[in-house]
Deep mutational scan, measured.
Amino acid sequence: KELVLVLYDYQEKSPREVTVKKGDILTLLNSTNKDWWKVEVDDRQGFIPAAYLKKL
């Protein structure tokens, strides 16, 4: 499984997104879309802008 580091706080703006904090380490589920990556946060799955994440 691939992990990503959150570079900036992000507040979800729709039900398909998730809220994260800078410094969080998340499981990356899908990065095929270059703009929005799907991650897992506390048993929730959702999207975050790829620019907010860095692969570890």
Rank of each mutant, 00 (worst) to 15 (best):
K13F: 06
W37E: 01
L7P: 00
R16L: 13
R44G: 06
L53C: 15
R44C: 05
V20N: 00
K34E: 12
G46L: 10
T27H: 14
I48L: 13
D42C: 12
T19G: 05
D35F: 15
K21S: 10
F47D: 05
Q45G: 06
V4D: 00
F47G: 01
L28V: 07
E40C: 12
V6Q: 00
G23P: 00
L7Q: 04
D24T: 12
V18N: 02
L53T: 06
L53G: 06
V6E: 00
P49D: 04
L28S: 02
D9W: 03
V20A: 11
D42G: 15
E17V: 04
E12L: 10
A50T: 06
L7Y: 02
L28E: 01
T32D: 15
E17T: 07
R44P: 00
E2R: 10
W36P: 00
S14M: 08
P49A: 03
Q45M: 10
W37F: 05
V39K: 00
L56R: 03
G46M: 10
T32S: 13
I25V: 14
Y8P: 00
I48S: 03
V4H: 01
S31Y: 08
I48D: 01
T19Y: 03
K1N: 12
D43V: 08
L56S: 03
V39Q: 00
D24K: 07
L7V: 07
P15A: 13
Y8R: 14
Y8G: 08
A51H: 15
V39I: 09
G23F: 04
N33R: 09
G46Y: 09
K21D: 04
K21I: 07
V41P: 01
N30I: 07
L28Q: 00
K34Q: 12
K38N: 06
L26Q: 01
E12V: 07
Y10D: 01
E2W: 10
T27F: 11
Q11C: 12
L28N: 01
N30C: 10
V4Q: 00
V20C: 09
G23Q: 02
K55H: 09
G23D: 07
K21Y: 13
L29K: 05
D9A: 07
S31H: 10
K21W: 11
T32R: 10
V4Y: 06
Q11S: 12
R44F: 07
P15R: 10
G46A: 07
S31M: 08
Y52Q: 06
Y52E: 02
L53I: 06
I25F: 05
Y10L: 01
P15F: 07
L26G: 13
D42V: 12
L56T: 06
T19K: 05
K55D: 05
E2P: 10
I25D: 00
P49C: 05
L28M: 04
K21Q: 12
E17A: 06
T32A: 13
L26W: 06
A51K: 14
A50D: 02
L3F: 14
K13E: 08
K22I: 05
I25K: 05
S14F: 07
N30D: 15
R16W: 15
L56Q: 06
V41L: 10
T19C: 05
P15H: 11
G23N: 07
K34H: 13
F47T: 03
R44N: 06
V41M: 09
Y10R: 03
E40I: 10
F47H: 06
K22D: 02
L29I: 14
G23L: 02
D35H: 14
Y52G: 08
L29G: 02
I48K: 00
G23W: 05
S14P: 06
V41R: 11
K22S: 08
A51Q: 13
V18P: 02
T32C: 13
D43M: 09
V39A: 02
K13Y: 05
W37H: 03
G46W: 06
L26A: 10
K1I: 13
N30F: 06
F47A: 02
P15T: 11
Y8K: 15
L28H: 01
T27K: 14
Q11V: 13
V20S: 04
E12F: 10
E40Y: 06
K34M: 10
S31A: 13
E17R: 04
E2F: 08
Q11H: 14
T32P: 04
W37S: 02
L26I: 14
K55F: 08
V20R: 01
G23C: 08
Y52H: 14
R16S: 13
T27G: 09
E2D: 11
L53D: 00
F47C: 12
K13T: 11
N33I: 06
E2Y: 09
Q11R: 10
V20D: 00
A51M: 15
S14R: 10
V18F: 08
K1E: 09
G46V: 14
L5H: 04
D9G: 06
E40H: 08
L28G: 01
G23R: 02
I48W: 01
K55A: 07
T27D: 06
